[in-house]
């Protein structure tokens, strides 16, 4: 069934878009990531202009992360205090990122910069997660109990001042690294046009040593707030949010996210991290492939958006 999208200005198959929403929603519910780094390329692939795709995906991510966050909230697997502290850094980071984004666009080669940063970031984060989680799985297999958190595993991060106790996460850390992580996520997210969940999840696990179960719900709260405000910002600044497209994606996304959240709770922490690591690495390799392999058409034609 074809439906014409009023802002994207092309007809799309409703069921195809719905299915894409469900699939990405499942993944986002399972890992606590927004899924923007999966959905945006998919939409561009079916012919929607990159600007409309980025703007509309934001509201889809807001919907699926809200339904996911509610599911985790009921299980008390969510640290609201930690989320608020991250958000404080995140807002400043987003502003700085938006500023650098316009600067890079003025210099040209923005596509290449985005492609390269996807490859480097996704490749590094994915590899790191795979190595760590494989080690954890092997340790468990050898019969040794899965290492929870050794008291001696404190790093220099834990020596910083302004310590706060986050009860749900069972950590006692300085707010400085929390703000720094929030800032970095907001900054990178604004430049690369992604929610940054796939960066936040490993950062909280490995740097802050927050339990995997709590990380996912907390990450969703952060994603929800940033993506809901991104929707409004995109709608105000460039009028490129396609509400019809967003609604179809949302309906699919929230359904997928519900099942994903349940599947995520059933899988052991280190396995979940291995799966996410593989996914992140796969997307990173896909971007690397695009950069290295000769494109089918070395020419491209783009409409220059009218400046309003």
């Amino acid at each position: 069934m074809q439906i014409y999208l009023p802002i994207a200005e092309i007809p799309v198959n409703v069921f195809l878009v719905l299915f894409m929403g469900i699939a990405v929603g499942f993944i986002s519910g399972m890992f606590g990531i927004g899924g923007g780094f999966l959905m945006t390329p998919l939409l561009i692939f079916i012919g929607i202009s990159p600007a409309v795709a980025v703007a509309s995906v934001a509201s889809h991510i807001a919907a699926s992360s809200f339904s996911g966050a509610l599911a985790y909230w009921r299980r008390r697997a969510l640290d609201l205090a930690l989320a608020l502290m991250l958000l404080a850094g995140g807002i400043v980071g987003t502003l700085a990122g938006v500023w650098l984004f316009s600067l890079l666009r003025a210099l040209g080669q923005l596509d290449l910069m985005i492609g390269l940063s996807y490859v480097l970031l996704l490749g590094a984060v994915g590899t790191m997660m795979i190595v760590e989680s494989t080690r954890a799985i092997l340790r468990a297999r050898k019969g040794r109990p899965v290492e929870i958190r050794r008291p001696g595993s404190h790093t220099w991060i834990h020596g910083l001042p302004f310590k706060l106790r986050f009860k749900t996460s069972r950590i006692y850390v300085s707010v400085i690294p929390v703000w720094a992580i929030g800032f970095a996520i907001g900054f990178i997210g604004a430049i690369m046009g992604i929610g940054g969940g796939f960066l936040l999840v490993p950062a909280l696990i490995y740097l802050m040593r927050v339990p995997t179960g709590v990380v996912v719900g907390t990450s969703m709260v952060l994603t929800l707030v940033t993506m809901a405000s991104a929707t409004v910002m995109h709608a105000v600044s460039n009028h490129l949010v396609d509400a019809v497209l967003a609604l179809i994606l949302m309906v699919g996304g929230v359904i997928g996210a519900q099942f994903g959240a349940r599947a995520g709770q059933r899988i052991r922490g280190e396995r979940l991290r291995l799966l996410l690591g593989l996914l992140v690495l796969a997307v990173g390799l896909r971007f690397a492939y695009d950069l290295v392999i000769q494109p089918t058409d070395i020419y491209t034609v783009r409409i220059i958006e009218k400046q309003e």
Binding site: S59, A63, S67, L70, V232, V241, Q258
Partner: peptide, 21 residues
């Protein structure tokens, strides 16, 4: 009505998420 439209879309997102849960 960019602002209203954006707010309405964001509300629609929250409503959809809440309904699903």
């Amino acid at each position: 009505y960019g602002l209203l439209y954006g707010l309405a879309t964001a509300m629609m997102a929250l409503l959809t998420g809440w309904l699903a849960s």
